[in-house]
């Protein structure tokens, strides 16, 4: 399991947040996902056997939001 933090370009509408949240939560392997509206970040736990952080970032980008930075951290 990995903890993944995506830093997005500034989010300005709360409905974007709902969109991203739903889309990310549906990706297989993603648990505990959370979109931080004000910090413009997505935080989630990822089972990397099912999907990679890049896949998650791609889903977010396909919704129309730019991913500026991907951070991954091993969960112990």
């Amino acid at each position: 399991m990995k903890k993944v933090i995506l830093k997005l370009d500034e989010l300005s509408c709360p409905s974007c947040m709902v969109k991203i949240n739903k889309a990310v939560a549906e990706i297989p392997g993603v648990t505990n996902s959370k979109v931080l509206f004000n910090a413009s970040k997505v935080k989630l736990d990822l089972n990397e056997q099912q999907n990679s952080a890049q896949t998650v970032a791609k889903v977010v980008e396909d919704l129309g939001y730019q991913v500026l930075e991907i951070k991954e951290k091993e969960l112990i």
Binding site: S15, V18, K19, K22, L63, G64
Partner: peptide, 16 residues
């Protein structure tokens, strides 16, 4: 409209 479509795809009726 583009944002509206992406919202509808995940069944959200947004302002867009």
């Amino acid at each position: 409209g583009m944002q509206a479509i992406s919202a509808l795809k995940i069944k959200v009726i947004s302002i867009d």
